[in-house]
Design a binder for these strands. Structure first.
Lengths: 342, 342
DNA sequence: CTGAAAGCGCTAACAG
DNA sequence: CTGTTAGCGCTTTCAG
């Protein structure tokens, strides 16, 4: 009932408490008999190693902090799932913090991690984050840091990302090859590398295939279903012609589809739509939604693996510092004029 | 760069290190001047309070463990989102552990939490969990424990749940009132309280409205889209008549809908379908899916609030030990013969 | 193979 | 208002 320590076990067995400590940590210089005796009485007394004392002494907490905008978002919950599973297998626990897309919260999270003496931090920055100050503090304290997906430009930190440029390019190219010519792109108004890269891919794909880049076909807003609907209405009202949409993520694409349906436009015959993220619902909606898969689970696993390497080797050779996963094109009904391929 | 402690600050200012400690903790018996001086040099030296040392000494970690089957599942990520937001506001950090629906992992998680000396544990049990042994260990160690959603029967622990019985009843009653008479229920083959309660609600609703309870209209399987499809095929093959489905969760309902569509049956005119959970896709699919909302965010916030009370008062009066949220009926197209209400 | 002893950085009496 | 002191429960030398 009352907390039992190695001292209690030591007394019970007439051993020095340091011997007990070694036995519990499976130290090679302890006899099998002693180890077994110690383990048995530990179990009998209901002993639980005090990791806090252990951490204080050893300087290792076996905890890594994970900082994400919001665990509520499928993408992040999926990546965190992957990270936790891998880190857990390697004896690490996860301290979770949500920035709620706010720099202030993000800094609070970093402060908490620093105070908790986490062994490392894995983060994906908030939409508001513009400079690296808080993250530099992490480095100043010699705490390993890695980014996934959303990272800061001009700030050298190991990371796992997907190639958003290729993603944007592939999505757009797919539309072009399906015969669409007047392709609208909907992006975020806040400037985040992943979004600007997708847009850059869109622009370059148009360029490569000799299609004009019309500024009025690039819409910026707050990402949401509603902004997708609004986009379609706006273009229609302004009389701007279109025959396809590439949106920065899937929810916006759904908004586009809903509005197009409401207007009686046929998808994919008259208008093609492709999203980005491969949300669970892409396969369930009608028409099923073409999109770009971000390999979320793999991203989580990769960043965990990368991180374990950093924890071991401290400094990584430059060629191993950045893992860039290829985005996967998922062709579904919403862009399949004629034939349908999944 | 090297770790700075209160001792460093004390030296710098010619103070006793305990004075520095008090100043940093905003102790009332310290002069304003001293506090300010301490804070300034703390900032200047880049001091970060060592929470580990603090926890060891005070016996409080300000960390709560959250044990969930998988953060990957919308329901859980949403609840965890709510929990983290609230606990964070009250100065607690979250240690996250996934049981992956396995008892073994669940026990490992509990062990980790115990070792980490968390101040409390909030859990939702795995599908495999059948007895309370591991959770009793938590109580034996005097660590506050609360369940949300999935809990053990015959094991008295504070909890926040929704009334699954009412949920099942409401869903079924809704189908009956819409004129459906041959209602199939699909449930989980593994025995979990939340699922058996939903089923009990289904049975009682049929009974109340004088409809026969046919065992062959109750299907048990592994929850999945595929099992939904399979269910429809099976019933059809066996020649068992039906005009509506109430499934234990939304994915299974989607399977049912997909198979019905493939068979050319009209929804909701010929067959009505209602799910459970109110997943994000319910509003996006065609037809939109009627379902029962579980108030996930609210559940997270409520369990966090309940937990803060436990941490404060240790023992809760019985009438406050269990919060049961009402399930919310969401009527959408999949059950709306004639008129459509959202 | 086992024991003795120091100390990680902080909290919280107790003293002044 | 500030200083002194004794640990929290472990890890880790250094001795035997």
């Amino acid at each position: 009932m009352a907390k039992v320590t190695i001292l209690d076990i030591a007394k019970e067995l007439n051993l020095a408490f340091s011997t007990v400590a070694r036995a519990l940590n499976d130290h090679p210089a302890i006899s099998k008999t002693t180890k077994e005796a110690v383990r048995m009485t530990a179990d009998r007394l209901g002993y639980h190693k005090n990791e806090i004392a252990s951490s204080l002494r050893s300087g290792k907490s076996n905890i890594v902090g994970i900082l994400v905008p919001s665990i509520d978002v499928t993408f992040f919950s999926s990546v965190v799932h992957g990270i936790e599973s891998v880190m857990n297998k390697h004896g690490y626990s996860i301290l979770l913090y949500q920035s709620q897309e706010s720099v202030k919260q993000e800094n609070k999270g970093i402060e908490t991690f620093l105070n908790s003496r986490v062994d490392g931090i894995i983060a994906s920055i908030s939409l508001e984050t513009e400079h690296a100050d808080a993250f530099k503090t992490i480095q100043k304290n010699n705490i390993p840091l890695a980014f996934f997906d959303r990272k800061l430009p001009n700030f050298e930190v190991p990371s796992v990302t997907i190639n958003d440029y290729i993603g944007g390019f592939t999505a757009t190219e797919h539309l072009i090859k399906a015969g669409y010519k007047k392709i609208v792109h909907i992006t975020e108004k806040r400037n985040l590398l992943i979004f600007s890269e997708r847009k850059r891919g869109y622009v370059d794909a148009l360029r490569k295939y000799g299609l004009p880049i019309e500024e009025e076909r690039i819409l910026s807003g707050p990402l949401s279903i509603e902004f997708g609907r609004q986009g379609v209405r706006e273009l229609t009202a302004k009389g701007i012609d279109f025959d396809a949409f590439f949106t920065l993520e899937d929810f916006t694409a759904m908004g586009v589809i809903q509005e197009l349906k409401a207007m009686g436009r046929k998808i994919p015959e008259e208008v093609g739509v492709i999203g980005f993220a491969n949300e669970a619902f892409c396969n369930l909606v009608t028409p099923t939604l073409s999109t770009i898969d971000q390999q979320t689970l793999k991203m989580g696993e990769e960043v965990a693996l990368l991180f374990l390497k950093i924890l071991k080797d401290k400094e990584l050779p430059p060629e191993n510092r950045h893992i860039v996963l290829p985005p996967l094109l998922k062709v579904r009904e919403s862009t399949s004029r004629g034939l349908f391929i999944e």
